[in-house]
Design a protein around this nucleic acid. Structure first.
Lengths: 247, 247
DNA sequence: CGAGGTCTTGAAGACGATCAACAAACGTGG
DNA sequence: CCACGTTTGTTGATCGTCTTCAAGACCTCG
C-alpha cells in the first residue's frame, strides 16, 4: 500500500488480471507500456470530478480512492472503494461524461491511459479488450454485493462484509500480510461507504472488537477470526470472480 | 409491456442503443439477426439461475425481470430491474459463472444469443462490442445510483427515485404513455428492491398517494406530479447516459 | 504547543421492522 | 359463473436499530 516508486505502474493491475485469466507475454508488455507516468494526488483531492469528460482513464498505482456522489443536503455516499490495480474511470471511455466523482481517500499515485489508446486496443487486441470489459463487470458485481449488504444485512454484517472484501481484494494484489493489512480510511469514510452515521459506525466497530473478530488501530487492521467474520458477513467470494479461466 | 408477438425481438434493444449512439444499417441488421427465438418464462420462474454457466446471453423481449440474491435467512435483495431491451446476463459472457439469479417478475418473453456469437462480434464488430460493453456500464451506473438511494435517502425518496427511473427507462423504449405506464410488480417485489419491509413499502406508497405525486392501482402507475416527484427523489437522469454521441 | 480533525460516549428521538389480524384481489377448479 | 383458497394489500400496536445532538478525549501535524 505504500507508494513504491520502483514498482512498475501496472504491477497490481497485472496481478488482478492474472487472477482471472492467462496473459500472453505480448499482452503483458502492451499493458505495461500503455500507461503514462503518474501524478500524485493528495488525500482528499478529487482524482476525477463529477461531470468531467475525461480524455484518458486512470489507474490507481498506490493508495485508496473512492467513487462517490453528493446529495443536496451535503451527504456523501461512496459507491466503490478502489485499491492499487483498479481502473477508477475505465468506464468513462464509453460513458464519456462522469456522473460521479472519484476522490483520493489516502494519498494516491495514479497513472493514465488515453482513451485513444483504449480505442486502438479495441481494434487490435480483442482479448485485452474483453479483459478490460471484465474489470468493469467485476466493479458491477461488487456494486450488487454492496446493494445486498445495505439492503438486507444489519450494520454489523455489512461492516464485516466490507472487511472480508478488503482482505480478499488486497490479497489478490499482494497487499495483505495474511490477516493484517493497512487501510488508511477514517470512520467518516466508512460511514459514507456503509450509509450509516459515524456514531453508529464507531459503535459497530466496537462490537466487532468486543467479539474479537477484528482489531483496527489507526490504519492497521487485523482479522482476528476469519471464519466467524465470514459467518457474520455471510461472505462468499464468488462475486469477485477469482477464477483463472479463458475469458 | 404486453407480449407483442409481431414486433421484432430486438426492437427495444435497438431503441436503447439508438438513444446512446448512431447505428449503421449494417449494425442494425447484425443485431436483429443475432437473436434466436425466444421462450416464454412464466412469472416467478428463474430465467437464469445462480451458479449457472450460461452458454448464451438473454435479452428481455417483453415483461419485467429482476436480478436478485438470496440470504441465508431467506431474505431476497433485488439488485436490478430489467425491462424489454435489457440484456439480463450479458455479463455472463465474460464473468462465466452467475453469482446471482435472474427471475421473471412478470411473464417474460426472452431471446438469446450464443456466447460464441458475442465472441465473433468482439472480433468483427468493435463498435457493436463497445456498445454492448456500454450497456453493462449503464447497468453499473444504475447500481451506483441505487446504492446512493439506499444509503442516503429516506424511504420515500428512494421509492420516488425508483419511480422516476422507471418512467424514464420505459420512455426510452416507448413503453410509457406519457406519465402513465404498466408495472406488473407487487409490493413484495418493491420491498426486495428497496430493502424495506412490505409493510413499510405500503405506508410509503400511501404517503406518495396522499401527497398526490403518484397513483398506483393494480399494475397501472401514473405520475401525477413529475416535478415534485423528482424533487423528493433528488432525481437527475445523467446516470442513465441518454446522450446520443459516438461511443 | 495549539488547532483542527477524528474518535468515543451518553441521552433522546425517529424511522423503519416486526407481529398480528383482516380485507381485498386473484386464480383455479368445480 | 360461483366458491374457495391463496396471494397481495392494508392497518394498528409495539419494538429495536440507527440517527441526531452534544460534549469531551485523543491524536496528529503544522
Amino acid at each position: 500500500m505504500k507508494p513504491d516508486v520502483n514498482s512498475p505502474l501496472a504491477a497490481s493491475l497485472l496481478l488482478a488480471l492474472e487472477a482471472r485469466d492467462k496473459l500472453s507475454a505480448e499482452e503483458r508488455v502492451v499493458i505495461e507500456q500503455m500507461f503514462t507516468e503518474a501524478r500524485v494526488v493528495p488525500a482528499g483531492d478529487d482524482i476525477v470530478r463529477d461531470n468531467d469528460r475525461p480524455q484518458h482513464s486512470t489507474l490507481i498505482v498506490s493508495g485508496v480512492a473512492a467513487r462517490y456522489k453528493m446529495l443536496e443536503e451535503g451527504e456523501r455516499q461512496i459507491t466503490a472503494l478502489h485499491l492499487p490495480g483498479d481502473f477508477v474511470d475505465l468506464h468513462s471511455f464509453l460513458l464519456k461524461q462522469m456522473d460521479h466523482g472519484v476522490t483520493a481517500i489516502s494519498q494516491c499515485r495514479v497513472a493514465t491511459v488515453p482513451h485513444s489508446t483504449l480505442a486502438e486496443l479495441s481494434l487490435k487486441h480483442p482479448h485485452l479488450t474483453r479483459l478490460f470489459w471484465l474489470l468493469t463487470l467485476i466493479d458491477g458485481s461488487m456494486h450488487r454485493e454492496w446493494l445486498v449488504a445495505m439492503g438486507r444485512r444489519p450494520a454489523i454484517g455489512q461492516f464485516a462484509h466490507l472487511l472480508c472484501e478488503l482482505r480478499v481484494r488486497l490479497g489478490v494484489i499482494g497487499a495483505s500480510d495474511g490477516d493484517h493489512f493497512v487501510m488508511p480510511i477514517t470512520q467518516i469514510d466508512l460511514s459514507d461507504i456503509l450509509g450509516l452515521s459515524t456514531v453508529h459506525v464507531n459503535r459497530v466497530l466496537q462490537e466487532l472488537r468486543a467479539s474479537n473478530l477484528v482489531s483496527w488501530k489507526g490504519q492497521n487492521v487485523s482479522i482476528l477470526n476469519w471464519e466467524e467474520l465470514c459467518r457474520v458477513a455471510e461472505f462468499d467470494d464468488r462475486y469477485l470472480h477469482l477464477v483463472r479461466e479463458p475469458r
